[in-house]
Design a protein around this nucleic acid. Structure first.
Length: 853
RNA sequence: GCCCGGAUGGCGGAAUCGGUAGACGCGGGGGCCUCAAAAGCCCUUGCCCUUCAGGGCGUGCGGGUUCGAGUCCCGCUCCGGGCACCA
């Protein structure tokens, strides 16, 4: 055993008392050496012509925020396990790594410290990369991507222009969050729930700016339908479905009564055309373009008040819900316009209200209100004294307000007697026939706003020319890089717009003086196709070679946090489809991520462990003490990977426990063979066979558990087998010594299955056992013998009235009759039965016999 | 409010098809080794009664199905997460 100088280095605070224990091997030396070897020997660099079947494992590329935190460690431990496992199984594994290196934190840091975002970011990248390597995770680093690299920026810009060319990128006015205090545009996450700026505390206002959008809504149906084929967590798919929010219904034209302009009508969208007979009023959003013409002079003040309130109201207030509003505040949230529209089904006029519970951004910005069958309409109608007419008969005993369920149609003329579904169809057909409406599908999903009034992002490669309009930059001028000498302090304009020369440019088309776009792209653009670039990061004439990408795509296993369940994953899916449609990714599977795994969070004191909460427990302290292997093992062992982990005072001790287990394996694999002198030839004894049986069972269990992502039970299985090995050595000492052949085989099988989990220790032990140059991670994944796995005898339980009364060791192939006979013959059973034959016998040989009195 | 998860010893968790509840580990208790300690090794550890035999209870709560329920069904409670006027 080596005297181990543990304890040198590493913050004391990160160490729990047990971490000072002496180890069976020099953990830090071994881990550092193997990390070096994996790099030197290019073990996980994948050549394009590799003939093995490809397998693509990808962890979501991280925002480089400094040294890895426990969430990263957990993520990359899972990913690395899979990389090594699939590789041992004979796959050509693509395992790339990169950095989502554009983004707001670097820009904010720059404002604070004066350091340029690039050098700041690159320093953070170096830290994160170092800790990923120190964890022993292996990647093909030649493929590394950083979103802020000029090469990557270039292809981002090429893709943008291609989208522009194909009508997938367009400009429109859109409101942004404007902070008057900071004189800058805020991201949504910088606006607090009460509508104030997180930094200055000023009330954030909406400002309309001309911005770039990607037409993701064009893909709404494909994005929705594509979900069905994916092996993703059901809840992530549900979240995406809700986000897309497809609703089928009808648009209906409501003629305005005595309109100022003849023939004017209000177009509403409804999912319940069957309820139109129950419309007792209509509502338009405060921002609706017809509000002005619908409002009469007498009502103008009231309507203006609603509009003013709606535009000033924080999102929070506006989203509080009609039902949750106090009567006083509710009164200001809606007003009669003074106009009426005609219900096309009844011909009756109904009043038009303006109210903030109707949103301009959804449907047509106007609704027909049916208080009897819609809860919001009901709440509003109750406050404003508007009539309620039921068109669906509620179930017996229903005493609520709005009934939104199925039922027989009533008060509905030609729809009476139908159920809701058929009434919908009939009503829609009638509308189409009358020319006053049509079937319609609406989505909650909006087009993707990609413009950001920021510096540290990918510049948008267009020029705005007074005569030519929007002019794309010629491809040979790309990448368009932002200048370094910018003033980042927030003073009212985006940094690039304030630069003395950046924006000034001659129009590429007509040559007259023009202006560059000074916005940058949302960083979600960068992360929407990086997995494609990873397949062919060397491509110099296009973002990636489609043939090379097609080899690896789709990603076989994508791993990341649940926080990306909607936006990143939806945008990436959209990009993959759009890239194919604009000709950049022909022949590539349109769904980029075949299997998705979302890991649980690391929590501390009930909250998410994060830098901003200041409750980080840095992994680096553990690298210096228990070691990377022990930390990896802890993350695998702590519980199911989907579940959150609570970081407690006990955690350090569990990590030490994982280190102790690795020591024990080391002693079994390296020390015991060298130290013992009572080895025996042959492996034919009962206990030898039992040992080999345990080894085969281990391999079967771990293989199965890896496939199911049940890593905690895989670790437990390894511990059990280590216990078996240890007992075998101890007990064989008294009976002629352990069999060398059986023991070696049983130890090797343990090292092999442990190799993806604790790569350093197993690599070192393997080389010591098998000679210089032997590489455990280049060994084929061990096979197991089914006959060895099957148990020869099992413990049969005998129950009386369902309670366990006896356990009997029986042959695994025992017949039903023998099992029952054996059960009845057991003395304890006979005694418990008291001579009375059971009235019923349930037998499930070989596991159980239940005797019912 | 709606939609998902979840609840098992002192703690993290296991139990794959309805069939031995508590694998494995942490923590605790006892012992061996040692001048002593650390490390290591061995035994023990759900709760209660009890004699090392043995018995009773036990998977958030209340019902049900079943020879048999942590597991299936119905009704709750609590905790966590997501969404929240989407017509």
């Amino acid at each position: 055993m080596l005297p181990v100088p543990v304890g040198a280095g590493g913050p004391v605070s990160a160490r729990k008392r047990g971490s000072l224990m002496a180890r069976a091997y020099d953990v830090q030396e071994v881990e550092r050496r193997w990390q070096g070897r994996w790099a030197e020997e290019r073990t996980y660099e994948l050549e394009p012509e590799d003939p093995r079947p490809p397998y693509y494992v990808l962890c979501m590329y991280p925002y480089p925020s400094g040294p890895a935190h426990q969430g990263h460690v957990r993520n990359y431990t899972f990913g690395d396990l899979l990389v090594r496992f699939r590789s041992m199984q004979g796959h050509a594994v693509l395992s790339p790594f990169g950095f989502d290196s554009f983004g707001l934190p670097a820009e904010n840091a720059a404002i604070r410290t004066g350091e340029h975002p690039r050098s700041f970011t690159e320093a953070r990248i170096a830290e994160l990369k170092a800790s990923v390597i120190a964890l022993g995770a292996v990647y093909d680093w030649r493929r590394e991507i950083r979103s802020h690299d000029p090469e990557y920026i270039k292809w981002n810009q090429v893709i943008f222009l291609r989208f522009l060319e194909h009508g997938l990128a367009y400009r429109a006015l859109a409101p942004v969050n404007w902070c008057p205090g900071c004189k800058t545009v805020l991201a949504n996450e910088q606006v607090l729930a009460d509508g104030t700026c997180e930094r200055s505390g000023d009330l954030v206002a909406k400002r309309n700016l001309e911005q770039w959008f990607f037409r993701i809504t064009e893909y709404a149906d494909e994005l929705l339908e594509g979900l069905d084929s994916l092996e993703w967590p059901e809840r992530v798919k549900t979240m995406q479905r809700n986000w897309i929010g497809r609703s089928e219904g009808a648009e209906i034209e409501l003629p305005v009564v005595e309109a100022k302009e003849p023939g004017a009508s209000l177009r509403v969208f409804t999912t319940r055309p069957d309820t139109t007979f129950g419309m007792t009023y209509a509502v338009v959003a405060p921002e609706h373009p017809l509000v002005g013409s619908l409002t009469t002079d007498e009502q103008r003040d009231a309507v203006e008040e609603v509009r003013a309130l709606a535009s000033a109201a924080s999102d929070m207030e506006r989203q509080a819900g009609i039902g949750g509003s106090s009567p006083a505040s509710l009164a200001k949230r809606g007003a009669f316009t003074g106009s009426y529209v005609t219900n096309p089904f009844t011909g009756a006029p109904v009043p038009v209200y303006v109210a903030d519970y109707v949103l301009m951004g959804y449907g047509t910005g106007a609704i027909m209100a049916v208080p009897a069958e819609d809860e919001r309409d009901f709440a509003f109608a109750s406050s404003y004294g508007l009539p309620v007419v039921r068109t669906t008969r509620p179930p017996e005993g229903f005493d609520g307000g709005a009934w939104t369920g199925d039922g027989v149609k009533i008060n509905s003329g030609f729809l009476d007697g139908l159920d809701v579904a058929s009434a919908k169809a009939r009503a829609t057909a009638w509308l189409e026939q009358q020319g006053s409406g049509r079937a319609s599908v609406k989505y909650r999903l909006r087009d993707w706003l990609v413009s950001r009034q920021r510096y540290w992002g990918c510049p948008i490669p267009v020029v705005h020319c007074g005569s030519c309009g929007v002019v794309p930059l010629p491809e040979d001028e790309l990448p368009l890089l932002a200048p370094d000498d910018v003033e980042l302090a927030p003073v009212g304009e985006s940094p690039l717009a304030r630069h003395p020369t950046f924006a000034k440019v001659d129009c590429p088309s007509c040559g007259r003086s023009a202006r560059r776009d000074t916005d940058t792209m949302d960083t979600f653009v960068d992360s929407s196709w990086y997995f494609l670039r990873f397949c062919d990061p060397w491509s110099t004439d296009r973002p990636f070679d489609p043939a090379e990408a097609a080899r690896f795509m789709p990603v076989d296993q994508y791993i990341g946090g649940i926080e990306h369940a909607i936006l990143h994953l939806l945008y990436a899916r959209f990009f993959t489809k759009a890239l194919a449609d604009v000709g950049l990714a022909p022949g590539i599977e349109r769904e980029p991520f075949r299997r998705l795994f979302t890991q649980g969070m690391i929590r501390m004191d009930g909250t998410k462990m994060s830098k901003s909460k200041g409750n980080l427990v840095a992994p680096s302290g553990y690298f210096d003490t228990a070691g990377a292997d022990a930390l990896r093992l802890f993350h695998l062992f702590a519980g199911p990977p989907t579940e959150d982990i609570d970081w407690t005072e006990q955690t350090g001790e569990v990590i030490d426990g994982c280190g102790r287990f690795l020591d024990r394996v080391w002693r079994l694999a390296v020390d015991a063979p060298a130290e013992r002198d009572d080895w025996r030839e042959g492996d034919d004894r009962g206990e030898d066979l039992a040992l080999l049986r345990s080894a085969h069972r281990l391999v079967a269990k771990v293989t199965d558990d890896f496939e199911k992502w049940s890593f905690n039970t895989a670790v437990a299985a390894c511990m059990e087998h280590a216990n078996v090995l240890q007992r075998y050595l101890r007990e064989s000492a008294a009976s002629g010594g352990p069999s060398k052949a059986a023991y070696d085989r049983a130890v090797d099988m343990l090292l092999l299955v442990l190799a993806p989990m604790a790569p350093h220790m197993t690599a070192e032990a393997w080389e010591i056992r098998h000679g210089s140059g032997a590489r455990v991670h280049s060994e084929p994944w061990p096979a197991f013998d089914r006959e060895m796995v099957a148990e020869a005898t099992v413990t049969m339980i005998v129950q009386i009235d369902g309670k366990v009364r006896e356990r009997i060791e029986v042959d695994a192939g025992i017949t039903e009759d023998d099992a029952v006979a054996l059960a009845l013959a057991a003395p304890k059973v006979a005694e418990a039965l008291g001579g009375i034959a059971p009235s019923r016998v349930v037998s499930r040989p070989p596991r159980l016999v239940n005797l019912v009195k």
